[in-house]
Amino acid sequence: MNIKSERLADTVNRAGQTDPFMVGGKVLSSRFLMGTGKFKNKAEVRDCIRASGTQVVTVALRRIDLTRHEDNILEYLPPDITLLTNTSGARNAAEAVRLARLAREAGYGTWVKIEVINDSKYLLPDNAETVKATEILAKEGFTVLPYILPDLNIARALVQAGAATVMPLGSLIGSNQGLRVKDLIQILIAEIDIPVVVDAGIGSPSQACEAMEMGADAVLVNTAVATAGNPAGLAQAFALAIQAGRQAYLSQPPGPRPFAKASSPLTEFLYNESTAS
């Protein structure tokens, strides 16, 4: 193991002790969740997991290709990693619920990322179906991480339904455009008490840092890492950026005041004359 990854792993562990991230009863020391899709090959997935220190990865369920034998992704994941089954492919709540139950039945845990998309042009999630699926699955004991278009009312409904986190998109899946809906995410961070994990659209470590600086509890990154020139290198950069953003948030730096215009004195009157009430 090279020195860089050791230091990273060490920092990640220390962070876990002083600034724990709790989801579904698990204490995580990494706030970097990683997707495993779109990689060149499965060995790269394994290298990126190692380089990033991530403890939660998403996987999807697909029909087996019966015409040829392929390695299974699970063989490339460390044994202690938490599997987050993504219901991608589901076009409605019923399909998402079915996929989640399949994964659980097969013994692959109860963490599920609800992704319900019936829009193939923009891949925007169906918030309403996501709430329905969350209600059903949370009742069945799943740890539900719903992927949504950031909407405070939907987020509140998800909290009521028993979601473990909310996962607002930053921008469209695969677009790498960063936090296009930053203000809407900010509202969720301010108003929602369960962890807010920014998912989708994070294209660079600086964008991941920005999300963490705002107060997001974690980020989920897939495309940017999988399609990078050096995926493991970028995965490590992401991990460091996420840590930097988190530390910045905890240190509460003063933000730029949008209306910092000086105007005429408002309280001189209190000091010029007698101030008896």
Binding site: R257, F259, A262, S263, L266, T267, E268, L270, Y271
Partner: peptide, 18 residues
């Protein structure tokens, strides 16, 4: 300090305008 009072008032005024 009158400066603190003024700073508070400026911030409050800006937010109220907004």
């Amino acid at each position: 300090s009158p400066g603190t009072t003024e700073a508070l008032a400026q911030e409050a005024a800006a937010l109220t305008r907004q």
